[in-house]
């Protein structure tokens, strides 16, 4: 099945973190997912978490350069959300048999496995960031995430010059790398 060109455009928008694309997908499919979750022992918060995770899966797929879903976007989102929710119910050890399938599904196990792997990596990074503490975290976030230049950062964080800031940033970075790689080695066999 050929993917709708409009949906391909949406995925391209996702890859660029295009707010408009996110909004469109959100509007079209969120209510369906919410109904699915609530009808199967979930709350609205659960619905939001699951839907957003599905959006991340979609984002990763778009970022990897494949915009061919081989099915409708709706079916894809439904399948991913159903799978994610089942997994979460199992983790909570709730009494579930099988979520009754109200619309067709496609196999999404491979994507979810890759997503799970990346998710753990991101969580390791987040954990490491939290562990290095302030002001290291803010300093590194400013440099690597917000990608501001050293001079700007030095002024913002009250360092006398860029070299001082650079010095500080280096120390922080070394600590972060140490923490991250320790966790990374533990988690990858």
């Amino acid at each position: 099945m050929k993917t709708d060109p409009r949906e391909i455009a949406l995925l391209e928008g996702l890859a660029k973190n295009d707010r408009q694309a996110i909004e469109t997908i959100y509007k079209q499919h969120y209510n369906m997912v919410q109904a699915l979750i609530i009808n199967n022992n979930g709350s609205t918060d659960d619905a939001r978490d699951v839907f957003q995770e599905a959006m991340i899966v979609l984002y990763e797929k778009a970022r990897s350069g494949t915009f061919e879903l081989n099915c409708l976007l709706k079916t894809y989102i439904y399948s991913v959300c159903r799978r994610l929710w089942l997994k979460r119910l199992q983790q909570q050890q709730k009494f579930v048999s099988n979520i009754d399938v109200v619309s067709e599904t496609v196999p999404v196990e491979d994507e979810l496995e890759a997503h799970g792997q990346r998710n753990t990596e991101f969580q390791m990074m987040e954990k490491a960031m939290q562990h290095i503490g302030e002001p290291c975290r803010s300093l590194l976030e400013a440099f690597y995430i917000q990608k501001r230049n050293m001079l700007d950062i030095a002024g913002h964080f009250g360092y006398t010059n860029a070299d001082n800031a650079k010095n500080q940033k280096y120390k922080c970075l070394m600590r972060l790398k140490k923490l991250f790689f320790a966790a990374y080695k533990n988690n990858t066999p």
């Binding site: 973190n17 959100y26 991340i56 984002y59 991101f122 690597y144």
Partner: peptide, 13 residues
């Protein structure tokens, strides 16, 4: 980089 993208995307969501 990916972490930063991910975080930005999440906050957008």
């Amino acid at each position: 980089d990916r972490f930063s993208d991910w975080k930005q995307y999440k906050s957008t969501l």
